[in-house]
């Protein structure tokens, strides 16, 4: 897509209107066309190859997620954990990617004092980093440890088209909302496809014809800690 031209049109549009902002609302409402549905994710663990971390790497690169080499302050929008059944020392381990579940009823958004964390109409839970005051209440409230705080300034900036974050704000996976709005796929899904695994599928849960809905219908899926009533929207096959 010719990004430049696209922006120019947007700019003209702005220039032409004395109260651009009011009109922008209308344009935005129509612009979030893909957001009419309800985004969700399926991770088919059976297709995850041994030792692959394409999604994690791609996410870091796409979203400028901070990595300082210290587990206390590293930020992980998606992270891999190795698990095994409790108390079975010699059982084989499995790797599960964990990320923000974009809860139907997100506790993080519920507790955010300034509504910096909010749920979009399309179900994506996202942080407005211009507004976050860094109270870290959302880190406390998220039962999935999916939220992270920028304890230090992030120096690396691999993707200049996407902003990085200053220190002092909280963040978590936003399902690549900026890409979804453009009609592109999230970085992790793209990387997973490119790696030949195709384990991650992001799509519209409300549309019964979408790939994700068909996957959910055809397989037995599990969501993490459904008992908490948060309504997580990341579904795992083979967990």
């Amino acid at each position: 897509m010719d990004r430049r031209k696209f922006l120019k049109t947007g700019g003209r549009f702005l220039a032409a209107t004395p109260f651009a902002c009011d009109l922008l609302v209308a344009s935005v409402a129509s612009a979030s066309g893909p957001g009419a549905g309800r985004w969700g994710m399926v991770i088919d663990l059976r297709r995850c190859p041994e030792g692959c971390d394409a999604c994690v790497k791609a996410c870091r690169r796409e979203n400028n997620v901070a990595e300082h080499g210290d587990p206390r302050w590293d930020v992980h929008w998606i992270r891999q954990v190795e698990i095994r059944p409790h108390g079975q020392e010699d059982a084989p381990t499995r790797t599960v990617p964990l990320l923000c579940n974009h809860c139907e009823r997100p506790p993080c958004a519920q507790v955010c004092p300034v509504r910096a964390t909010y749920q979009r109409d399309d179900g994506i839970v996202i942080v407005d980093h211009h507004r976050c005051i860094g109270c870290r209440y959302c880190l406390i409230a998220c039962p999935y440890n999916a939220r992270f705080f920028n304890y230090r300034e992030n120096e690396a900036w691999p993707n200049k088209d996407y902003p990085k974050r200053s220190h002092g704000v909280a963040e978590s996976c936003h399902l690549c909302a900026h890409r979804l709005d453009q009609g592109r796929l999230p970085a992790c899904m793209e990387a997973c496809r490119d790696a030949g695994a195709g384990a991650i599928v992001v799509g519209d849960l409300d549309n019964p014809e979408s790939e994700i809905s068909r996957l959910i219908a055809a397989n037995s899926v599990k969501r993490i800690r459904e008992d908490l009533g948060t309504g997580p929207k990341v579904h795992y096959i083979g967990l």
Binding site: P71, D74, R79, Q80, V81, I83, P85, H86, N145, R225
Partner: peptide, 15 residues
């Protein structure tokens, strides 16, 4: 918090 009931986490980038 108990992330995966019945499972124990052996290795992760986060503590």
């Amino acid at each position: 918090p108990e992330l995966l009931p019945g499972m124990e986490i052996v290795r992760s980038a986060l503590d």
